[in-house]
Amino acid sequence: MGGRDMTAQAPLLRVSNLTKTFGGVTAVSNLDFELPEGKLLGVIGPNGSGKTTLVNLITGFTRPVAGRIEFRGRDVTGWPPHRVVGEGISRTFQMVRPFYQLPAYKNLIVPLYSPRVKKLTGGRYGDRSAVALDLLEEVGFERDAYVSYKKAGALPQGYLKRLELAKAMALRPDLIILDELFSGLSLAEVASIVPIIEKLKHQGKTIIMIEHRLKELFRIADGVLVLNYGRKIAEGLAAEVMKSPAVRDAYLGSEGD
């Protein structure tokens, strides 16, 4: 019983001393942060500040030069992506590249084929198409309009982003990393996705959001991490972080107020 208390207190994700260099460029340097279960962390920073590299490091798409990533107390540093997913971390990509020639719901067949899903459903996948259609309805594909049956290539960007979110949700992750989910979307489209993320939060999912759309992010984020040149320059509540002079200087520049 004591052990269970310990895991409840320990953070879901702990990143310590994480460093990644590409040739002479340091993309992420000596980064430390902790993420408790059920929280939504926003990661912000100017272009090229190492946000996407951080996602790639956590999800195993690149290996760090130094440092350690622990998920549920397990060292997952340098694991290949499919093993990281198996532990319960899933991600979306900033550049959505669905299988354009397939109907939208068929795009979800691949994540639903994952060994993780098989494990969680007790060895049986069930009817993947039915599960896929339910998932798409959850992210706002109107069933009455048969949007899920349209070819992914024929869908507007807003639906493609939601399809990307559904792909990540299909893996039933504990931690979802959303890499600039709102980029390239209209205000109305963003407004329709925010409730989906809030719902995920209520379901107890832990979420990391890389975002440039600060207004929408701050409304749902529990905490914010600010990166600049791969370094953490601030961390804490959104309102406090934005008051920090270092952040204003680096991120907002003259547009600060």
Binding site: P81, H82, S90, P98, V110, P111, L171
Partner: peptide, 10 residues
């Protein structure tokens, strides 16, 4: 899109 399949845990 092999990255998409990798990120699906395969």
């Amino acid at each position: 899109n092999d990255r998409s399949v990798m990120s699906a845990g395969i």
